[in-house]
Design a protein around this nucleic acid. Sequence first.
DNA 1: TATTGTTATACTCTATAACTATA
DNA 2: TATAGTTATAGAGTATAACAATA
Lengths: 164, 164
Amino acid sequence: MRGSNGKGVVRRTKNGETVAKSINFGPLAYWVGFNLRMAQEAAFQAFSHRSQEIGESPGRFATLTLIARNPGISQTELSLANGRDKSSLTPVVEDLVRRGLIERKRMDSDRRTYRLNLTPAGKKTLALMTRCARRHERNLDRIIGLRDRKKFLQILKRIAAEME
Amino acid sequence: MRGSNGKGVVRRTKNGETVAKSINFGPLAYWVGFNLRMAQEAAFQAFSHRSQEIGESPGRFATLTLIARNPGISQTELSLANGRDKSSLTPVVEDLVRRGLIERKRMDSDRRTYRLNLTPAGKKTLALMTRCARRHERNLDRIIGLRDRKKFLQILKRIAAEME
DNA sequence: TATTGTTATACTCTATAACTATA
DNA sequence: TATAGTTATAGAGTATAACAATA
């Protein structure tokens, strides 16, 4: 959430002036849906910036982690695992192969299917991104507070699982 | 989160079969960042579907609410309020004017600026969307539980405000 | 010179449908 | 016929930079 804090807007002009104008957010202020989106955008953007420092994107991180944890996973399984259509995965896999982070092997038992695995370079990159993610998580933990973290996570999982 | 529940993937084939394959999410399972994204996507998509029934998108809803609550707001103020660049707002405002939901008036004191206001039709549409959002919120409340709602909302607001 | 809003343009991420090759 | 993965294509949603009108 850039430039907004839920109560007002702070605007900075080019010559360094600061102009504050109070904005009424109405019901948006107390609705979970809106605040969930704002929180996610802020967190996602922060993680994006960290990832950029090592030349990767948040999406690549999830993909590499899933391949690392499920060696030999197929593209269809992978696309189901993160809830995207398999066609969306094609350019991602292509990019990761091109940059030598993963390798694809045809299955012998079913030659339509590819098995995906990390290369040593992919493992190295994943390790870098994982450190990056841990710093990000520490930052989130600081904001959330350790006492409430478990409950907060539980609720997020329930929303993802039970939303109609 | 389609097809995934954080532990496994359930896949339905065309002839009605169900194939379950267990997926290891590794650290993604307990990281707040990832689960925040999954929760937001699930909630956003559910709200999208509800909105579509009345022919609007979630983004239009926030825009209309901000105009309703801040009559005469300018486009720059509006774009700052929801953290987007003003150029992103141009096609949105254009669309809302074209469909007769808002009106623009040049300010007399500064003729570069437009004041935005809802038309009666815009108020009617916003009322519809607000009912739609309340149903969505009730669904979220059911999942979160009333006892934890306040705390959960506080944490979301802190993340949006304090994320680096 | 600075600001408001527009335009031109491009990028990311995603989906649908039609395709191929295999089964 | 059905499935794995690819291609072509399109649609949201967003950003940056340059611009005209106005201040």
